[in-house]
């Protein structure tokens, strides 16, 4: 009996390995994982081709594509053109999302509290420590804010979300830029570290006085109190799909490697912390057939994946950007 089950298990492992060999393989960012998984599911139904995506984090995704263990890497923190050229990689944006501030203050409802970039930077530098601080009161004259200690919560693991968040803080606060900087992990001057987007969401939900930053989808799913933000144009905006799309529309995508970070974009409607998530592939792939399979999938996702993305609170790329990306594939990536 035991022996039989071992044989069965071995046969199954064999079957899985065979199946994987034909699948498109990718690894990287955790933020787009839900939408990639959903796309992969429909794609399999449509075409019979599978996708094996490991959501191991942006940094790890870059590591894997450099080690050539996967056909594509995925990252929320784009590589700069010179790094792309060094490794012979092509890069393009796949889908976008918004990063929102979430808080846990008794009596404050979603969207009520207004914050701006410099104030958030002050909070994360440990210089504003109470919710009734004059700087916060000034932005919220009508709210009755309690004398409650602020527990600022950040990502303890390396994260593309942190990269986009610290990029935004560096853009709006010279002090932040010089003393802390932007990266997937930084030296936080104060606060509590939590693991993953869901870790931050959870800590905020259970800690009175907490503030954190998460992808919009996590705030929605966990029913957290998100805040409004003052954008670059000085207007107060609430985190909505329209506001994320407005920020994305302002972006100038005709740059090498589509290196575009959507933080702090101009425009009255723009949400200040919008972020794109990127795909990395080799321009001269070792396995052309596998590379073509992956491109087929991305092309399919651009054409048919928009509705699914919106259902999961992601923002599809605008049509003109899709055209630019597809032109780049034909020009740069060897397909024969």
């Amino acid at each position: 009996m035991f022996f039989k089950s071992i044989i069965a298990a071995a046969a199954m492992i064999g079957a899985i390995t065979v199946a994987c060999a034909a699948d498109i393989s990718g690894a990287g960012a955790t933020f787009p994982f839900p939408i990639y998984a959903k796309w992969a599911d429909s794609y399999k139904k449509d075409t019979g081709n599978g996708l094996n995506y490991q959501s191991i984090g942006s940094g790890a995704g870059i590591k894997q594509i450099r080690a050539k263990t996967v056909t594509f890497g995925a990252t929320d923190a784009p590589l700069e053109a010179k790094d792309l050229d060094k490794d012979g990689l092509a890069q393009w944006p796949m889908v976008m999302g918004g990063i929102v501030m979430v808080v846990n203050i008794p009596g404050v409802k979603p969207g009520e509290l207004v914050l701006d970039g410099p104030t958030v930077a002050q909070i994360y530098m440990g210089k504003i420590t109470k919710w009734n601080d004059p700087a916060i009161k000034k932005l919220n004259p009508s709210l009755n804010l309690p004398d409650l200690a602020i527990a600022n919560i950040h990502r303890a693991d390396g994260s593309g979300t942190t990269f986009n968040f610290t990029y935004y803080l560096s853009a709006v606060s010279p002090e932040w830029e010089s003393s802390i900087g932007k990266a997937t992990t930084v030296e936080w001057p104060s606060g509590i570290g939590a693991k993953g987007n869901d870790g931050v969401a959870n800590n905020v939900a259970t800690t009175p006085g907490a503030i954190g930053y998460v992808e919009f989808a996590y705030a929605e799913q966990n029913k957290l109190t998100f805040t409004s933000m003052v954008n670059k144009a000085g207007k107060t905006v609430a985190p909505t799909m329209d506001a994320f799309q407005a920020a994305a529309a302002n972006a100038n995508w005709s740059v090498p490697g589509f290196y575009q970070i959507l933080a702090d974009q101009p425009g009255d409607e723009s949400w200040p912390m919008t972020a794109a998530t990127f795909i990395l592939m080799y321009k001269k792939p070792a396995n052309v057939a596998a590379s073509n399979n992956a491109l087929e999938f991305f092309k399919w996702a651009y054409e048919k994946g928009d509705k699914m993305a919106q259902d999961l609170d992601y923002i599809p790329m605008p049509d003109n950007v899709k055209k630019l990306v597809e032109a780049m594939w034909d020009k740069d990536i060897q397909q024969k």
């Binding site: 984090g57 942006s58 940094g59 790890a60 590591k63 303890a156 693991d157 390396g158 992990t185 570290g193």
Partner: peptide, 8 residues
């Protein structure tokens, strides 16, 4: 917390 995506 940090090993998984530490840069080499």
């Amino acid at each position: 917390n940090q090993f998984a995506d530490a840069d080499p």
